[in-house]
């Protein structure tokens, strides 16, 4: 009976220690999502004088026929897939380089996480300046190399603006992936490579047979984090292009923000949030499933 009492007290203390954090998490994460679900069933905009009027599935029906929504969805998908793919490639390359031993490795490792730590909004300004059509250094370099002869308006052409935004995103978030992959690389025992080399395998073969399979959990985790964050990209695009030119870089998050803050259409904005949330949950579920499979096959 003594033990029972101790356990009960442990329960109580445990909950007392956890509760403040949990309540705050509920307030800041659970409440807004729940609220969006609720509000998405109402029309609340300037036409209803910002009073919520129940309208059932209207907001969702409207979304089906909302061309701008589908365009932003497409932009977001392109932005996310291309940038996450490039980040994975580049992040893997950087992690492999940083895993070698060379003089000054500590410094280079420090430099290599710098982009991740810097404020996205500020670095978006820096990238907008790099891609500036008149004074931008990117045009200048290309001209000096003789690759182009007249300045290119990187942020003014629809397809180029998307490329510029992706470039900035890749620069900013590749370090996150290389940090994760580097940690994974360091946990692979050297003996595996040595044994493989004794069997006559070259480094290229070792990479495919040892490194990649053993890194799968880290790769999937990186994918998971990056996918979710890239899908919700906001600061970078807002500051760099504002969603332009002509909506070519408008992502779902910018559309949601404009719907709420500029058009004051709260009900429809909430419906957009709900759909984005559900899409993310679905994507995360798929990657988590792959992750658990990769982990199980490893052990």
């Amino acid at each position: 009976m003594q033990l029972d009492k101790i356990q009960k007290r442990e329960q109580l203390t445990g909950w007392m220690l956890t509760l403040p954090a949990l309540l705050l998490l509920l307030l800041v994460f659970a409440y807004p999502i729940g609220q969006a679900f609720w509000l998405s069933l109402f029309t609340k905009n300037l036409a209803t004088q910002l009073q919520p009027v129940y309208s059932g599935w209207n907001n969702y029906v409207r979304m089906v026929f909302d061309g701008r929504f589908w365009e932003t969805m497409q932009n977001t998908t392109i932005f996310t897939c291309v940038s996450v793919f490039l980040e994975l490639l580049l992040g893997m390359g950087i992690a492999l380089v940083l895993n070698q031993s060379f003089p000054g490795r500590g410094i280079v490792r420090t430099i290599a996480i710098l982009p991740w730590a810097l404020p996205t909004a500020l670095m978006a300004l820096a990238w907008a300046w790099i891609f500036n059509d008149q004074y931008g250094v990117w045009n200048d370099i290309l001209q000096r190399l003789g690759l182009i002869h007249t300045e290119i308006n990187w942020l003014g052409e629809p397809s180029l603006a998307m490329m510029a935004a992706i470039a900035a995103e890749v620069w900013k978030t590749t370090p996150f992936i290389s940090i994760l992959l580097l940690a994974g690389l360091q946990s692979i025992p050297v003996e595996l490579y040595e044994a493989h080399a004794l069997d006559g395998a070259n480094p290229w073969q070792s990479f495919w047979r040892i490194t990649l399979p053993l890194l799968m959990p880290q790769i999937l985790i990186a994918l998971l984090f990056r996918f979710a964050q890239a899908f919700g990209v906001f600061d970078l695009v807002l500051v760099m292009t504002g969603g332009g030119p002509a909506g070519a870089t408008e992502t779902v998050s910018l559309y949601i923000y404009a719907m709420v803050m500029r058009y004051l259409d709260f009900g429809y904005g909430a419906a957009l949030i709900v759909v984005t949330f559900l899409l993310l949950v679905a994507a995360v579920a798929i990657v988590s499933f792959l992750l658990s499979k990769a982990r199980n096959s490893k052990f």
Partner: peptide, 8 residues
């Protein structure tokens, strides 16, 4: 992503 939270 924070965009999902800002309205609430």
């Amino acid at each position: 992503p924070y965009i999902l939270l800002f309205l609430g």
